[in-house]
Simulated scan of single mutants.
Amino acid sequence: MSAFRDLVADMDTTLFDTLADDATIDGRPVRGMFAAPWLAPQVGRLNTGIVEPHLTVRDADAAGVEKGTVVMVIGQGYEVVATEPDGTGVTILVLRPV
């Protein structure tokens, strides 16, 4: 791995350790950043248009996750409806309440 990739991996570890929520994917504990649509996320003065709850996790934690996989976060159960890797080492799990 290059020095840059090592630095980015260290940064991701710090960010997820500090900012992420505890969650489980099919009972396996993970750390992820949960976003809820009812909070009306905004970028500057523009609404983002995000309507589904989603959990952003590291690619390694998303490995093997398929549609229908059960995710528990903040005491609520969700079903994965889509996975969206972004090419930077994280994957967004698009969720639907169950």
Score class of each variant (00 low, 15 high):
residue 1 M to T: 09
residue 1 M to C: 04
residue 3 A to P: 04
residue 8 V to T: 05
residue 11 M to D: 07
residue 11 M to P: 00
residue 11 M to E: 05
residue 13 T to C: 10
residue 13 T to Q: 10
residue 14 T to D: 08
residue 15 L to F: 10
residue 18 T to Y: 14
residue 18 T to H: 14
residue 18 T to F: 11
residue 19 L to V: 10
residue 20 A to Q: 13
residue 20 A to W: 10
residue 20 A to V: 12
residue 21 D to H: 15
residue 21 D to G: 12
residue 22 D to F: 01
residue 22 D to Q: 14
residue 23 A to R: 01
residue 27 G to A: 06
residue 28 R to E: 12
residue 30 V to C: 06
residue 30 V to P: 05
residue 32 G to H: 11
residue 34 F to A: 11
residue 34 F to R: 11
residue 35 A to T: 14
residue 37 P to S: 10
residue 39 L to G: 09
residue 39 L to T: 14
residue 39 L to M: 14
residue 40 A to P: 01
residue 41 P to E: 12
residue 42 Q to K: 07
residue 42 Q to A: 11
residue 44 G to C: 07
residue 45 R to P: 02
residue 46 L to T: 15
residue 48 T to K: 01
residue 50 I to T: 05
residue 51 V to P: 00
residue 53 P to E: 14
residue 57 V to S: 00
residue 58 R to D: 02
residue 59 D to K: 04
residue 60 A to Q: 05
residue 61 D to W: 01
residue 62 A to C: 03
residue 63 A to P: 00
residue 64 G to M: 00
residue 67 K to M: 03
residue 67 K to Q: 13
residue 68 G to S: 01
residue 69 T to E: 05
residue 70 V to L: 08
residue 71 V to H: 04
residue 71 V to L: 03
residue 72 M to E: 15
residue 72 M to R: 15
residue 72 M to V: 15
residue 73 V to S: 04
residue 73 V to W: 06
residue 74 I to F: 02
residue 74 I to K: 15
residue 76 Q to K: 14
residue 76 Q to N: 12
residue 77 G to W: 01
residue 79 E to C: 01
residue 80 V to Q: 10
residue 80 V to P: 03
residue 81 V to D: 07
residue 87 G to R: 15
residue 92 I to N: 12
residue 93 L to E: 09
residue 96 R to Y: 02
residue 97 P to V: 08
residue 98 V to E: 11
